[in-house]
Simulated assay, not measured.
Amino acid sequence: MLDIDLQMPPKGKWHTPPFDPRFPNQNQTRNCYQNFLDFHRCLKMMNRRGRSTQPCEYYFRVYHSLCPISWVQRWNEQIREGTFAGKI
């Protein structure tokens, strides 16, 4: 995994997410979805270990920057209802 400090943008200078070589195309739908999953997996793992969830903020900021709000709201509803298709 990459160093968290290298992934964090300078304070107050967060306009777009950095380039992710896993998603080189213009269509960033998979990037959005993957960062949403990574955020929730990170939260689950950090809470289970009793550690700070601060490193998970990176994924939160990326998916909030890339994903339409309606998608995030629908996915969160599905998680609450237990019908989300992704593996968290």
Rank of each mutant, 00 (worst) to 15 (best):
M1Y: 12
I4P: 10
I4H: 10
D5H: 05
D5Y: 03
D5R: 07
D5M: 07
D5E: 07
D5Q: 08
L6R: 14
Q7M: 15
M8R: 13
P10V: 14
K13L: 15
K13H: 13
K13F: 14
K13V: 10
T16Y: 14
T16C: 10
P17S: 14
F19N: 02
P21N: 07
P21E: 13
F23S: 06
F23H: 11
P24M: 05
N25I: 05
N25T: 10
Q26K: 06
Q26I: 03
N27T: 01
N27V: 09
N27C: 12
N27D: 15
R30H: 14
N31S: 12
C32N: 04
C32Y: 01
Y33L: 10
Y33R: 06
Q34A: 06
N35A: 00
F36Y: 14
D38H: 06
D38E: 06
F39A: 03
H40V: 03
R41G: 09
K44E: 15
M45V: 01
M45I: 01
N47K: 07
R49P: 00
R51S: 00
R51W: 00
T53Y: 01
Q54A: 14
C56E: 02
E57S: 03
Y58V: 01
F60N: 12
V62F: 01
L66E: 09
C67I: 03
V72T: 11
R74N: 04
W75H: 02
G82L: 08
T83H: 07
T83M: 05
F84M: 08
I88T: 14
